[in-house]
Every structure is written in structure tokens, then in C-alpha cells.
Design a binder for these strands. Structure first.
Lengths: 205, 205
DNA sequence: CGAGGTCTAGTACCTTGGTACAATATTTTT
DNA sequence: AAAAATATTGTACCAAGGTACTAGACCTCG
């Protein structure tokens, strides 16, 4: 797995070079255009550019689906770290980490894992899991507004089943399915089954 | 917040009673039919019934959106615990936990938190986060199969926008949007935009 | 018992989504 | 330079989704 560093400075810090002797450096993410395959992209950012960092992470992952992106922060910040992970980053660590630490990070990420520092870990447990929970209860609160039969129809529609199939599975006519759906849409104040699917399948919190 | 215990035995263990003097017991989840409001449901299960436990958790949450479900396991198992949380459980602990532990669990859950034992915690971090990561890369791999323009259309369609709106936003005709979508459906081997939304919005791993 | 909610369903109609069968221009790849 | 991929659009057509208006059967609650 190739190591690619993206740093405005355009040069490798000593520890980076020690950890990844083969690493290549680019000044900006836009400079990457070739076929890089399953690369490991180290994105070096400084504290005042969270927004652009996030854009870069999503951008890179969008362009190079096989790659994994790691963020190297000059001034690590837990909020920024959480944001980075939410964008799909595979790791977030101090830019001035020792070569030993970097090698460890590299190993974990290369094996398909995600590298988390202790503070971030703590945040992800509390925030992340709380959000997941609240998301679940939000979905239940949504379903709560519906009658039992409507719930059945709503769940099947949100899975992507057609009216015809739902009708067959519930042993009612397609017309009745439509009746339920119309009621559902009105009660939940949404337009169509796609909105319903988005409401019921959204586990982001 | 009322405490409701569901246990095949139909009686409270000593420690449960000590932790929740007001707790009511039922022999099965089906017995619950009244309006229970914001209850705390303790679901007692034994090791050989993971499947039915999960059904009960989802069932209870479906019927009582306001309630929070805790699982009490005779023989705690990490896999089962993870499964329980994925179904929306707010806690998973040993059925023979001491009253002190139960009170602590209760407090956390009541405050909107999720109670995690140390082993489960470890699992959720490694497994949970890895899955989240792989889910993200899976989405990127999906988008990778599309041309840049198709990606734009796909993302907007997955957000729930109509063809007309997508056309307006991208400043092309609705016909062109349809052309892109047809190409997208064929390449991803799916039937319609709802399947697309499910593919691109699924963050479950 | 009557009011209201739930579940069911018919007919009719309109809108949206998706496909078939094209065609043209531009860019990229070979 | 030729071939292939990409981006655009047209006309036409059919299927599916959704709404309007309506209505009977059943159940629960005051």
C-alpha cells in the first residue's frame, strides 16, 4: 500500500519519512490525479482549516474509493477528529507523532481498522453511541404516530417493496396499500415513499 | 419512569426487587398492552434464545416508542450484546448483577444514555467503527463505478430530489437526468431510485 | 347507542418514473 | 486517426405511484 502525503509544505517531516521511507508528497489534494489504487493518504492540516480539511477528506474518498485517508493535525482537536471520522477518515493523529506511533497507526489502518486516540475514543463512545440511540428512538417516535397496519406498510415501503408486493405480503389489495400510504404521508408530512425510506433508514442520528 | 420486567419466571429476582422496588413483572412481552408511556423495560433472556430476544426488542420498541429496553442475560455473550444494541436496546447486562450495578444501569439509561459493559465497549469500538468505516468505503466503491456527472445525479436522487429538481439544479433537461439515471441503474444493477437511496444512505455497514 | 378511529376497497384520474429508439457534440483512450 | 466513453436532448410510450371521492365492516369508548 503506497503512502501519499498531502502537505502544504511539500516536504516530509523527519518522523514521517522514518515511518514511510517510500512516501510521496504533494502540496495539495488536487494534484493527485493518477490511478493511485489502494493508497494510504496522509492529509496534513493545521488548526484553522477544519472546513477545507473535511472537503478534502470527502473529495479524496469520492475520487479514490479504494484509498484510506488519515488526518495529521498540527493542533489536534477532538471535535475536528470526530468530524473527520464522520467524513470517512480512517485515522486522526498528531502531525508531530513519533515514527513509532505513525508506524502503528499505519499498521492498524492498513489492516482495515480505524485508528483512534484515547480522547477521540472517549468522545466516540459517549457522543457516537448516544447519537445512535437517539436516532433509534427518533425512528420509533416516527413509527409511533402510525397505526399498527400503517407501520407494517411503512416499513415494507421503506425497504423498497412495490405496492403490488406489499399488497401480496399483507394479503390485501394494492388499493388498500395506497390508502395506507396516503394516510402515512399525510401524518408524517412527507411527499412520497422515498422520503419515508430516508426517514426510516437514517441511522446517522 | 416505571420499571417493567419481562421474565418467563414471572417473578423478580432479589436484586431486581432491591434496585426497583416498584417494578412490575410480566411473563412475556405480549402481555404488555396498556399505555405504558416512558417505561423502562427489562427483558430477561437466557442464552439459547438470541433470536426471540431480538424479536422482542424490536417488537417492544415498535409498540412502545417512548420506552427504553434493557436486556438482562443469564449468560452474557458479547455477540448477543452487540446484536441487542443494533436492535435499539439501551443496555445489556448480567441478569445476576448486584442491585448496585442495576441501579447504576438504570440511572444511566434513564438519563438518555446507553449502558455498556467493558467487553461490549471494546467490541463496539473495534467492530462498530470498523463497520462504519467499511460502510463508507462501500459507498465510495459504489460511486466509483459511476462517471462524475452520474455521481452528481445519483447523490441528488438518493437525497430524494425529483427528476425535475435535479434537472433544475444541474441546469440540464429532465430528459438528460433520466438518461443518467437509466445508466446508473444498469451499472449498479438496481431497479429504481429507491434502491439507489438505500444503497447510498445505508450507514449500517 | 352513536361518534370516531381503523381497515378495507372500488373507480377514476393525474403525475412521475423509467424505457425504447434514436441523434449530436465533446473528450478520452487506444 | 479511429474507437470508445461521456454528456446532452428529442419523441413516444408504459408502468407505477399518488390523489380525490366514496363507502362498508368492525371495534372501542363515552
Amino acid at each position: 500500500m503506497r503512502d501519499i502525503f498531502i502537505s502544504a509544505g511539500g516536504r516530509l517531516l523527519a518522523d514521517w519519512q522514518q515511518a514511510c521511507p517510500e512516501g510521496a508528497v504533494f502540496r495539495e489534494s488536487a494534484a493527485l490525479n493518477a490511478e493511485i489504487g489502494q493508497a494510504l493518504i496522509w492529509l496534513h492540516v493545521n488548526a484553522d482549516s477544519t472546513a477545507s480539511m473535511l472537503t478534502d477528506v470527502t473529495g479524496l474518498l469520492g475520487r479514490f474509493g479504494q484509498a484510506r485517508v488519515l488526518v495529521l493535525a498540527n493542533a489536534p482537536d477532538t471535535n475536528e477528529a470526530v468530524a473527520a471520522f464522520q467524513q470517512g477518515a480512517a485515522g486522526y493523529c498528531h502531525a508531530y507523532s513519533s515514527a513509532d506511533v505513525l508506524r502503528e497507526v499505519r499498521r492498524v489502518v492498513q489492516l482495515g481498522g480505524v485508528w483512534l486516540g484515547p480522547e477521540v475514543l472517549q468522545r466516540l463512545i459517549t457522543v457516537g453511541r448516544t447519537l445512535a440511540g437517539s436516532s433509534q428512538t427518533k425512528i420509533n417516535a416516527t413509527l409511533d404516530q402510525l397505526t399498527p397496519r400503517e407501520r407494517e406498510v411503512a416499513l415494507k415501503a421503506a425497504e423498497g417493496l412495490s405496492n403490488k408486493l406489499i399488497a401480496r405480503e399483507l394479503d390485501i389489495t394494492e388499493r388498500t396499500v395506497k390508502a395506507h400510504l396516503t394516510a402515512i404521508f399525510e401524518r408524517l408530512a412527507i411527499r412520497d415513499r422515498l422520503q419515508l425510506a430516508l426517514m426510516l433508514n437514517d441511522r446517522q442520528g
